[in-house]
């Protein structure tokens, strides 16, 4: 069978070879690769479309191995594997230890913090931080509840997506 994957690679040399290595090692064939370095995501990563061929077990193993090597698979056969969840915390970001909150967000299963932005207000209480998480598809609701819990436990006002 064939599988169409969209990988998200950092724009640095060697990324593509790293991604290919487990595919050929596990015995899957690479059918096509579309790699346009000038097309970038908003975060500056490069999406790579790749079609691989092999039996189901091999292909499953390829996906597991790629993910265990921290190579981001965005789509499998047109289905999103990851989705972004955005949130904003308002409050005294420095004093209330936003780093600890980020750590706890990162520890939620299937969740990775991929972007963090901070704006310190004139009044430190009015500082705001934007956090973007990447999470396994379909878990948005549960994760949003956890984000709220973590933010609130630090005394932040949590602004989640609708």
């Amino acid at each position: 069978m064939r599988l169409n994957l969209v990988l998200e690679l950092l724009d640095i040399p060697g990324q593509l070879t790293d991604a290919f290595e487990p595919i050929s090692r596990l015995g899957a064939n690479i059918v096509t690769v579309i790699h346009q370095r000038d097309v970038k995501t908003e975060r500056g990563t490069v999406p790579v479309q790749i079609t691989i061929e092999g039996d189901k077990d091999t292909l499953d193993m390829v996906i597991d191995t790629l993910e265990s090597q921290n190579i981001q698979i965005m789509e499998v056969d047109g289905v999103l594997r990851k989705e972004k969840i955005r949130t904003i915390f308002i409050g005294n970001i420095v004093e209330k230890d936003v780093k600890d909150a980020l750590g706890r967000l990162n520890n939620i299963e299937g969740v990775r913090v991929i972007d963090f932005n901070l704006k310190i207000g004139d009044d430190p209480e009015k500082s705001a931080s934007k956090i973007i998480l990447e999470a396994d598809s379909g878990k948005r609701k549960d994760i949003m509840v956890k984000i709220k819990e973590i933010g609130k436990s630090k005394g932040f006002l949590v602004i989640n997506e609708v």
């Binding site: 308002i90 704006k119 934007k130």
Partner: peptide
């Protein structure tokens, strides 16, 4: 009442 211009501008940068 606790919404700040900073938070609105962070949201805007993301298209929100």
């Amino acid at each position: 009442s606790k919404i700040t211009p900073e938070s609105i501008s962070l949201a805007k940068n993301e298209g929100y």
